[in-house]
Amino acid sequence: MTSMILPPKQPAARRFVFVAMVLACVVLSPLAVLSGYGLDVITEIMIFAIVAVSLNLILGYGGMVSFGHAAFFGLGAYATVLISTRYDVSPWLGLAGGVGTATAAAIVIGAFCVRLGGVGFFMMSLAFAQLLNSGAIKWRPLTGGSDGVGGLLRPELFGFDLSDAGPMYLFTAAGLVGVLLFMRMVIASPFGHAMVGTRESSLRMDAIGYQTRRIRLAAFAVSGAIAGLGGALYAFYNGFVSPDALSFGMSGMILLMVILGGKGSLLGPVLGAGLFLSVKNIVSTHTSHWLLIVGCIFVACVMVCPDGILGFGKRLFRSGERR
């Protein structure tokens, strides 16, 4: 486990240039190859990658099984749409409000959840997400009930109109890269190590003198903030949000993306989000049995590769080395 967390030691400057070049190629190449629709598809994948990465922080590194992560995604999306449309202010303020709302909610909800371990945490996170889901359905004057709210128009950035697929794609890519760099920093920091320590043995960390509850709460809040950013970007992308964004099913999908790609690794959730949404886009054009396929992916993932695709690949690679 630790080998995944500690960055390998290489000459820093050369490594940085190399990574930056690869990153630039990866980010820019779709712009040259793909049309508007293709870019939209990848933009959506990157938005969910951000959300999956945020869940991975508490699930993979913190060991907290949350079944309510849609709460922060949905809150971010709702707050962004509502602030931008109801108060007629710049969507940028809406985005900031979305992230802020999700962060505040994560601190409050986290304060309740991190008191409990294991199944209690799971139940509590689920209950809060359902509470918000009910709220979004019930509070019609504000949220539009089960119809949702829309009408958000994407703003301009540095003279580029984000309503075009290209600029929106680049903006989202910048967001994802930023989140990944931040996540890498967090994981390598003393705080990140304390978080992993808390996952491995909360009792020992307590005994050494760490405030495990505070560590868990901080991780939960950071995770909620990033999920809120994902939600805000989704609001930009979609212009519309409905209670589905806060639903039980949405929480499950986010969880599946993390598990599918590989929890506890930086890029696993990104891979998971990409794979899941690609399969979804391909399958749902051919058959109405989308649920069946998702269910089978879940089952296959748990039975065959519980460490996700990254873990599965690693195991294959290692067993190949040994022979």
Binding site: V65, L255, L256, L291, L292, G295, F298, V299, C301, V302
Partner: peptide, 10 residues
């Protein structure tokens, strides 16, 4: 949890 969630979809 994931397995039973997947089964519920199926």
């Amino acid at each position: 949890v994931l397995l039973t969630f997947g089964l519920s979809f199926i």
